[in-house]
Nucleic acid binder design. Sequence first.
DNA 1: GTATTGCCGAATGGAAAAGT
DNA 2: ACTTTTCCATTCGGCAATAC
Length: 349
Amino acid sequence: MSAVHYVEAICASGLSIFDLLPKESPLYIPTKELENLLDEGLRGFSTAGMPLRTRSKVVKSEVCRVLGYAVPKSFRKCNKPHARFPGQNFDTYVQASDNLQIWNEELKPRRRYVLISVGEAGLVDKVKVVTGAMLAKLDTTGALTQKYQARFNAGTEALELVSGNDTSQLQPLIGSGASISSSQPTDDPEKGSVLPIRTVFEKLSSVVGTSFANAGSDQERNRGAELHRLVCKALAYQSYADDGQFPDVRHQLLEVKLQTSPTIDLGLVEPSSTEPLDLNELPEGTVRHCDVRYAIFGAAANDGQVMLTSLVLTSGEDFFSRFPRFEGKVLNKKIQIPLPRGFFGKAKG
DNA sequence: GTATTGCCGAATGGAAAAGT
DNA sequence: ACTTTTCCATTCGGCAATAC
């Protein structure tokens, strides 16, 4: 029985991708045939210039056509415990790189994972279909990466100090910041090195209204680094340094965010958390995550420039009173599976 | 023995689709 | 219109392998 037979049968059945198939259904396409159909049907399909989510949707639509299904108005999310294509029990991932990421779900051993490789010109290269059981072998650590998110809105004031005072736990460290000129921004805080939140607010206020060159839409991290540099300068550090650790300006217990979109990505740390911050020099528990100060800069990107338009400064403790936490899943988790070299078989030719 | 490069695991982040 | 989840590229730190 040729693979095309399945497509004709699915088409004739009038079923949608969301309709579950009974056990042993003749419409259920075995994994190998599924791979053949999709590889032949999608190869050469162009996704050039599309944003990621758009690309994903357009490719899913094409998958429907290739398999003989009607293209649904939307591809439902949150339809756990089912796959995105429940009837055929598969998910699709369109990959230009080798980092396969699966959010908020375990690998399901019986589910199929349709992995679609796109090349440099945005054309589909190759489609591989594997089971969750096969992918599980590539997941060597089982580690989950997690992040919190919150909603950003700039508010009405260009300059807004949410927390008038630092948390009481921080008071022993607060001082005039005499050591700033001789310290690195990445050094641990010392007694007396940490400026009061009001002083930080005054010093950072001058940064609002300035702008810098936009490194480009695919260089987001560099934009954040430029703001980080401006912040270090405004706080009178001699140098700019960033070691990627939390918080950004560790010596001031200050986290800096650049917002040109409405989602604040908080990463691993929940600002209101009373977990201790890991510091070398001070006893554990001296500083907690909620004692850290957050400088959230609103910005607009246009004409190749990033213009800083607003600043909100808050303690971690007060963070969620100003920026609502995403309350859906609250904490999002993913596994990341590096696809091995040659996974798509391009190397062999 | 030291410096550089490569690799791997994991984290970070923007922003569009889907949901309400 | 507004909220939340999804999507996946990119980047970083740490370590191993290789070059000097």
